[in-house]
Amino acid sequence: MKARLLIVDDSMVIRNLIARQMLDERLPPIDLVGLAGDGEQALAIALSRKPDFITMDLTMPNMDGEACIERLAEVLPGARIMVVSALSDKATALRAVSKGAHGFLHKPFSEEQLVVALLELMS
C-alpha cells in the first residue's frame, strides 16, 4: 500500500520541489493526495483525503502552520507531520513538536536533506 502524502506550503515552487523528491528510489511508494497553499486548505484536504504523512510550512497566510498542526492533531491524530520551514530558531521547532509535529526540516534544504527527512518521517 502506498504512503499517502499531503504537501502544505504557500510557495508553489517549494510544493513542486518536495513533490519531485517523492520519486527518489530510497523512499517507499508515495501517493500524493494533495497540495495546499495555507492551513485552511490543508485542513480541508486532510479531512477528505486522510493523508498518512504531511509536510507543513509554518509562515503562511490565512491559517499558519502552527495553528494547522494543532487542529490536525485533534482531527487526524494518526497523521505524522514534518515541519518544513525557514523559521530556524529552537523555540519554534520545540513549540511545533509540542503541538503535534514529528520532525522539522529547515529551509533552505538540499534534495538529500529532504529525502533523509522524509525517510525518517515515514520510518
Partner: peptide, 8 residues
Amino acid sequence: NMMSGRAR
C-alpha cells in the same frame, strides 16, 4: 522568506 527565517 528563507533568508529572513534563518536570521531567527
